[in-house]
Each structure stands twice: as C-alpha cells, then as structure tokens.
Simulated assay, not measured.
Amino acid sequence: MRINLPTWLTLFRVMLLPIMVLVYYSHDLLPWIPWRIANVTAAAIFLAAAITDWFDGYLARRWNQTSAFGAFLDPVADKLMVTVTLFLLVQSHPTALLAVTAAIIVGREIGISALREWMAEIGMRSHVRVAMLGKIKTVMQIVAIVVLLLEHDKDAETLRNWYVGETLLVLAAVLTIWSGLVYLRAAWPALRGDSSAK
C-alpha cells in the first residue's frame, strides 16, 4: 500500500500526541523546566496537530489523493487528539465541571462514531456526513483546549484565562450535544427500521 502525503500528515498528527503528553508533563518530570514553557509548547503541538487536520483534508481533495486507509485514519486521529488532551486537562485540573464536560464530548464522539459505522454497514453513511454545525463545534473545541493548555498553572491563585477556556469548552459541549442530535435525527428513520429511509 502506497501512503500519500495527506495520509502521512494524518500519521504525523497521531505521532504528535505522545510528544505533546511528554511535553505537558515535562515540568513535573524535570522541575527546572518552567511550567509556562511546558504549557506553551504543548499548546503549540496541539495547534500544529489541529492545523494538519485541516491541511490533510484540503490536500486530499485538492490533489484527489483520497484513500480507504486515509478515510479510516483521519477521524481516528481527530478523536484521539481531542480525547487524549481532554484526559490530560481533567487529570491536571480535576474539577467536576471539566470532568462532566469532557465526558459529554468524548461520549458523543463514541456514540456518533458507532452510528456512522452502523449507517455505513447498511449503505446509508451519507445520511450522517459532517455538517457545518459539527465543524463549528470542532473549531470551538480546539480554541478552548488551546486556551486550557496555555493557562494551567497549579501554583496560580487565579486562573482567569483558564475559566475563559473552560467556558468555551462548555459551549463546545453544548454544540456537541446539538450536532449529535442532528445526526441522530437524520439517522432515526433507519434506526427505527423504516424501510422507506433509504
């Protein structure tokens, strides 16, 4: 199997994740590294991964270099990127609000992935394609996560920007539920066994 450039970019996005995790915890592992340097670098890596998400899709469409492996790997990389980073944030700042918000986002991703897989099996994958609402949700998630990665400081008494990021993530979770309901509504005729859905 020949791997094209868009797929290499997707693989690169996956490989960035363990690097981001190590960088995020570098202050704990090596206390002489300032937490601010660790946070900024981790946020930059996450942002780079998010940019490759857009770029690999653009190149695949522009150069007509789509592949079955790339189509499989791209959504997996996206969900890994968000899920791993949310786990990091919840572990380092274990508030009820952040934990519930992360659970909603991750739970929705699992549910919609399962729905898309099932719809594909019955030949109706096009009914649950990514909509504009889902794209807006993704952008808000990325902005929120970047802010949260930048602003976490265990020693700070006030974390104003952290609360901004947390608020944005809550809004992203609301959009997550909304877009999930949109997908569910589109798939509902097939889910209830309506033969005319096709």
Rank of each mutant, 00 (worst) to 15 (best):
L5V: 13
L9N: 06
L11V: 14
R13M: 07
M20R: 01
S26E: 12
L29N: 03
L30R: 00
P34N: 04
W35T: 13
W35M: 12
I37V: 15
A38L: 12
T41S: 11
T41W: 00
A43N: 07
F46N: 06
L47H: 04
A48M: 14
I51A: 13
D53G: 05
F55R: 01
G57A: 08
A68Q: 12
P75G: 04
P75W: 03
L80I: 14
L80N: 06
M81W: 14
V82W: 04
V84N: 08
T85E: 01
F87R: 06
L88E: 06
L88R: 07
S92F: 00
H93M: 11
A96Q: 14
L98W: 10
R108K: 13
I112T: 13
A114Q: 07
A114F: 09
A120H: 12
E121L: 08
A131Y: 03
V139I: 14
M140A: 05
A144P: 07
A144L: 08
V147T: 09
H152A: 00
D153W: 04
K154A: 14
Y163P: 00
W178H: 14
V182I: 02
L184T: 15
R185S: 09
W188T: 04
L191A: 01
S195N: 02
A197F: 11
A197I: 10
